[in-house]
Amino acid sequence: MLLFHCTNSAAETLSSTRQGQKHSWVNNTPLPDDAQPWGWQLHAVKIARQNVLVAMQADTRFAMVFWGLKKGDGETLLHLFYQRLANHLLWLAEDTGVLSEADCKTMLDRLLQQHAGFRFHAGSDRSVQTHINDVVHHCRDAVADNGCLPDNREEAAGFDEFLNEGIRSVKGGAYFQPAEALLCACLRDFAGMDEAGIAMVRERLKAQRRQEMAQTMLQHAEIEGLQEDDPAHALMMHLLEQAQGKGRLH
């Protein structure tokens, strides 16, 4: 079951009044004793006169942003949520090359089977909310820079990727990337991958980041006119080759 912990603003956004009666998607009925909910926190703000909803997974701090929804339209929110989540996991698994197309489908089927049910509850976690506030800040910056938020269906996934490639830390713990944390959690819980396999995925992602950094450095060197016989250029090439070697499949 998906369990969305809703801040007061999210609960209000998920409510509407029809024929004088208030209707809300928020249901605080206790969960069944055997429920194993997957916890997300939901927060709402107004940006550029639009409802903007931020959903963040409590453990991995993976965030997705939705906007332009009508007040009380929980159905559209859920549709976009499941669709966006599935796409992100497919892309993340594809980027690492750790699962075949059939295995990716199996992982998603298991996730949807276990979490097809959902519940919106009132309440929030202060630590999660701190990271949500940072996401909201990026949303406001995007509107200030571009005049609007990205398209809610096609460009939104790219905006989510930007948000989840950043570095976060929970209560002074080790730093991590939300995208990597979500992928590894899903590989463990829905693809049956053991800790050794997950460690290999983390190392591969680390190598990819090294490679991207080395390529960025080389591009900067070309712009600055750094010659190939310069020791700094040789060092960058060495780092790039090293990253490419560690990123290969074994």
Rank of each mutant, 00 (worst) to 15 (best):
R49M: 10
D151E: 14
Q114Y: 08
I223W: 08
T106L: 11
D59N: 13
H138A: 13
N133M: 06
Y175P: 00
R204D: 02
R168M: 10
D109M: 01
L14C: 02
H137S: 13
A179C: 05
V52C: 12
Q215H: 09
A221P: 09
G172R: 00
D33M: 07
L77G: 01
Q41R: 04
D73C: 04
Q50D: 14
N164T: 06
D73G: 07
G192T: 00
V45L: 11
H137Q: 13
L240E: 04
P231G: 06
M236F: 06
R209K: 15
A63I: 06
W25F: 11
G166L: 09
L163T: 00
A156I: 03
P150T: 12
I47L: 12
L89K: 01
S124C: 04
G247P: 10
D33V: 15
G72L: 00
W67A: 11
Q50P: 11
L3T: 03
Q113H: 14
P150I: 13
M200Y: 04
H238Y: 13
G197E: 07
L218V: 02
V170A: 05
A86M: 01
N152I: 10
P178R: 12
L249E: 14
A122W: 04
T13P: 12
G247K: 03
C184Y: 07
A102R: 14
F176V: 03
G166C: 04
R153H: 12
L218K: 09
D109N: 11
V136A: 00
P37K: 02
I167N: 06
M1W: 03
C186Q: 15
D95W: 07
Q21K: 15
A234H: 09
L3V: 03
L108S: 05
D125V: 10
Q208H: 13
T7E: 01
T216C: 03
L77Q: 09
G147Q: 09
N133V: 06
G20H: 10
K206V: 06
F81L: 15
K70L: 13
T29C: 00
A144H: 13
C104L: 03
F159K: 14
I47E: 05
S100H: 03
G197S: 03
M236E: 04
Q227Y: 08
D125P: 02
R248V: 05
E224N: 00
T60M: 04
S100E: 09
L3K: 01
G158E: 00
D125W: 06
T13Y: 13
W38T: 08
A55G: 06
V128A: 12
